[in-house]
């Protein structure tokens, strides 16, 4: 791992530790199924969901004339497809609806995240194949190596989020910054019950975090008791 890479990992961990994010999503027809335990299934699930949603976005934004089939078997293929789609829209002066563009950006971000992990994640038994280019669809029994606990948590988070639209988002930073985002459609006709639930979640998150800080402060306090 190079110095730059180490630096970005530390920055990413610090960002994680010093920020809390509370997202509320409106979703019809939920099921109480737990996410898959295996990382391989999480990845395949995310790719499948992104490709499916890309079809929906394409129909919704009248992108029928796009000359390529909207399918991808790897994250590299998906990224190429997304870039081609963007170029096609630019050429034809088509603008996606804002919520769809947010999903589009999330897909691009995730593809690049997987590509950035090509040196760390390895497909077992295939040393020359990079994960981003690996055909996930036709390889149901593949195994991944080198996935850290932190990456596993991130993959699980993206699997949970899927392609859902976040209507309420609160991001709280250690420096005191609080950013609240409300989706335009929801802001025009808000539901008090959802706001109450979001507020409760925000309080839970802040309390949990402040308890962690208090524990560290107590420990350090004991240390200084003895130092003096």
């Amino acid at each position: 791992m190079g110095t730059g890479s180490k630096g970005s990992v530390i920055a990413s961990i610090l960002d994680d530790l010093t920020h809390l994010q509370i997202d509320t999503i409106i979703k019809s027809g939920m099921i109480a199924a737990d996410p898959p335990e295996k990382v391989e299934e999480l990845l395949t699930g995310v790719l499948g969901e992104y490709v499916r949603k890309l079809g929906v976005i394409s129909r919704r934004n009248e992108l029928d004339r796009f000359p390529r089939a909207l399918s991808a078997k790897s994250f590299l293929e998906l990224e190429e497809l997304l870039i081609e789609l963007q170029n096609f829209m630019d050429r034809n002066r088509i603008r996606m609806a804002e919520p769809d563009y947010i999903l589009y950006s999330r897909m691009v971000y995730f593809c690049r995240y997987i590509k950035s992990k090509d040196e760390e994640f390895a497909v077992k038994g295939q040393p020359n194949v990079k994960l981003s280019a690996f055909n996930l669809v036709d390889s149901p029994d593949f195994e991944l190596e080198g996935v850290s606990v932190r990456d596993k948590a991130k993959l699980r988070r993206y699997h949970d989020l899927g392609t859902e639209k976040v209507v309420l988002q609160t991001r709280i930073g250690l420096d005191g910054d609080v950013v609240a985002r409300i989706e335009e459609g929801f802001a025009n006709s808000p539901k008090q019950m959802l706001l109450d639930i979001h507020e409760k979640h925000t309080k839970l998150s802040v309390d949990f975090w402040s308890n962690l800080v208090n524990t560290v402060v107590t420990f350090v306090g004991k240390l200084f008791d003895f130092k003096s």
Binding site: K27, S28, G29, M193, I197, L204
Partner: peptide, 24 residues
């Protein structure tokens, strides 16, 4: 039945909540 509300609490303090408004 299927859930109307789901709250996923992560170890780093983040929260993801899903709400089915019609059923709610």
């Amino acid at each position: 039945g299927d859930p109307v509300l789901i709250t996923i609490f992560y170890a780093n303090g983040d929260i993801l909540a899903f709400v089915d408004p019609e059923r709610l």
